[in-house]
């Protein structure tokens, strides 16, 4: 890590802090103009993260052995990128007040890993595991956004049910927009995760002869995949929508995060580096 990298990384976090504060303030003060400014700040943070990641990749041929810091930075980058893309499509700025804290959290996690240790064990450093990593992270970032949209949906839904038309209800997006974000994120998240799992399985099948599928984290990931697949199926084929879908996608993500930590604490797995 040199000076340029250090500066870029810290600037990215500073902008992350600013945009989070801006978005939260816009929510509390009910001012859309603040959210608009915060979007630009977030875009700046995203650009800085992009450059930081590109620098890391070019410098250390780090594409296939990212450091721990870059891994979390990549998570933050994915969420920010997906949110910004969604914002272009749906113009629902207030979502930012819920997304930026998550981005900031991931950036802080990255900052705590400044040691620059190589993340992936040597025997897994190849392009296939890199694809696996990127797709899985992007898929989970999309699930995170789906669940945030679901959370706002529940808030807005209860506002509307109570027929209380205050400034919060005006600030939050329409139910339809939130449902659309939820659907898009679930659909793409599931596609990414599926592709991520396939690349992981392809690597495991080639590199490790047997027994890898009994790994707790692999079983857990497969479980997540099944749960989200079920959700998507109910959404698209059966027609579950609205508050029920919102509740389920929030619950699915909460369970996802809790089990992730449980497994990390309780079991030794071949994915221990994440």
């Amino acid at each position: 890590m040199n000076n340029a990298d250090f500066l870029l990384f810290n600037l990215a976090i500073a902008f992350g802090v600013l945009s989070t504060a801006g978005y939260l303030l816009s929510l509390f003060l009910k001012r859309v103009a603040l959210a608009r400014i915060s979007t630009w700040i977030l875009l700046a943070s995203f650009a800085l993260m992009t450059v930081t990641l590109l620098l890391s990749v070019s410098k250390e041929a780090g594409l296939i052995n990212p450091g721990r810091r870059d891994f979390f930075l990549f998570c933050a980058w994915s969420v920010a990128g997906i949110y910004l893309a969604l914002q272009l499509k749906t113009k629902t700025r207030v979502l930012g007040a819920f997304v930026t804290p998550l981005i900031l959290l991931l950036q802080i996690a990255a900052a705590a890993q400044q040691t620059g240790t190589v993340l992936v064990p040597a025997d897994m450093q190849n392009s296939l595991t890199l694809v696996h990593l990127i797709l899985a992270v992007a898929g989970e970032a999309l699930f995170a956004l789906a669940s945030l949209a679901g959370l706002i949906y529940l808030i807005q839904n209860s506002n509307l049910k109570r027929a209380k038309f205050d400034s919060l209800i005006r600030l939050l997006p329409s139910l339809n927009d939130l449902e659309r974000i939820n659907r898009i994120c679930l659909l793409w998240g599931f596609s990414f995760l599926t592709a991520g799992l396939i690349s992981g399985v392809a690597f495991a099948g080639a590199a490790w002869q047997a027994g890898w599928y009994a790994d707790p984290k692999i079983i857990w990931t497969f479980g997540v995949w099944v749960v989200y697949g079920f959700l998507l199926h109910q959404r698209l084929a059966i027609g579950w929508r609205g508050a029920r879908m919102a509740r389920l996608s929030v619950a699915a993500f909460v369970v996802f995060v809790i089990t992730y930590w449980l497994i990390k604490i309780c079991f030794a797995t071949i994915h221990d580096f994440i």
Partner: peptide, 19 residues
């Protein structure tokens, strides 16, 4: 903000359906 009953109904519709 709308100050007639009919516009209030439209406002609610927009918060539910968006467009």
């Amino acid at each position: 903000n709308p100050v007639s009953v009919s516009f209030a109904a439209v406002e609610l519709a927009k918060k539910i359906f968006g467009e």
